[in-house]
């Protein structure tokens, strides 16, 4: 066991972990941040995406000890203090970008990372960027639409589709 310390959603967090403890296990089990989901065991589905030092990371593919000293952001830290949704979250609700909600935290965190680097992505850029995030419910239509809307693009022409 070794002690690991990091900042998660702006708060200091530390615990004793095994060397093999994954970041996702640390977040879910030690910190109770159960919005970080595990949908596979091969780093394909993206339900566990969080930000580590500002970059989107699959937290199932990183050891907790590797995040020592890092700034980690999860879905739990995305809304404002008063609970109001951020722009991406609000767009997902407005445009029905989620159904069962299981992939949603990873989708929102990936979308945030995309929009940080590319504030007005095209439809194709969004689809390509999301290749590491699987959704089984939406057929991706309203996810792509939500991210376009969150980036300030007019999606009204898609309303009838």
């Amino acid at each position: 066991m070794a002690k690991v310390s990091m900042t998660v959603n702006g708060k200091a967090a530390s615990a004793d972990v095994e060397g093999r403890t994954l970041l996702v296990s640390f977040l879910r089990e030690e910190l109770g941040l159960t919005g970080v989901h595990v949908g596979c065991d091969t780093s394909q589905c993206g339900a566990c995406v969080v930000h580590v030092d500002g970059k989107a990371v699959k937290s199932c593919t990183m050891l907790a000890l590797e995040a020592e000293g890092s700034e980690v952001a999860t879905i739990e830290g995305q809304a404002a203090e008063d609970g109001s949704l951020n722009t991406i979250q609000a767009a997902f609700q407005e445009h029905h970008g989620l159904q069962c909600g299981f992939c949603t935290p990873g989708m929102v965190m990936s979308a945030a990372a995309l929009l940080k680097d590319n504030p007005k992505p095209s439809e194709q850029e969004i689809r390509t960027y999301l290749e590491g995030n699987l959704c089984r419910c939406t057929g991706y239509h309203n996810i792509v639409k939500s991210i376009m809307a969150a980036s300030g693009q007019d999606v009204s022409a898609l309303a009838a589709e």
Binding site: T42, Q44, A160
Partner: peptide, 20 residues
């Protein structure tokens, strides 16, 4: 037996759909 071997549809495999 994994998402590495079983091809799930991804966002860039599908278009916007027109539904009515």
């Amino acid at each position: 037996a994994s998402f590495m071997d079983y091809a799930m549809p991804r966002a860039d495999d599908v278009p916007f759909y027109s539904v009515d």
